[in-house]
Amino acid sequence: MSETTETTKRTKNVRWVEPPKIGFMEALYLPAIAQGISTTVKHLLAGKSMTRQYPEVEPEIPPNYRGVHRLNRDEKGRVKCVACFLCQTACPANCITIEATGTSKDDPNWNDRDKYPASFVIDELRCIYCGMCEEACPVDAIELTSIYDLTGMTREQMIFDKEKLLSVYDETVGSGNDPVRTKRGVLSPASEKAPESAGAPLPPGRGQLGG
């Protein structure tokens, strides 16, 4: 029953077209060859090269390109990541490994934060560059940059730790090719204190009427 309906549907959607008959001149193929050669010669004489001169000339990469990851820094220069493990949870390729640690209240550098990653490792070879990690991140700490030409001599070189990922941030920040995601602006409350002054922009979920 279902097969018949499917066949009917298929035949109904098919439009039969008769192939055009070839005349004598067309059967010679010579006019077509001449036409083709003339196009080639026209491009040859125009003097305009279509070849990309890579790597001498690097292409312009759109800012929403998903390349090598970076770990952003907060306003004090510390890693912005709060070790919530959401990127690791979202990652379909299981390429992120995080170890979290608590901060010490006696440490003046960290006493305004509760938790940060002691280690943050991304296996760049295993990553499929889907961008789910940056979508999952509640504090915009992990982002995919437009660095596309990632190479390494060994597999170990392609496993990026926290320092390496922070150095990617240092290299790319303010380079004019920051990921567009950074410009989302306000961060969620986990990474920043609530604004004290009335004029400051309010983070989402705080003082904004939803809907």
């Binding site: 209240k105 509760d114 204190k193 609530a194 604004p195 004290e196 979920g205 705080r206 003082g207 904004q208 009427l209 939803g210 809907g211």
Partner: peptide, 18 residues
Amino acid sequence: GNAHSRLQEPKVQREDKY
């Protein structure tokens, strides 16, 4: 619940107690 808060004022922040 609701997905949003209508609080306009800054939240009361308190010290963690270890």
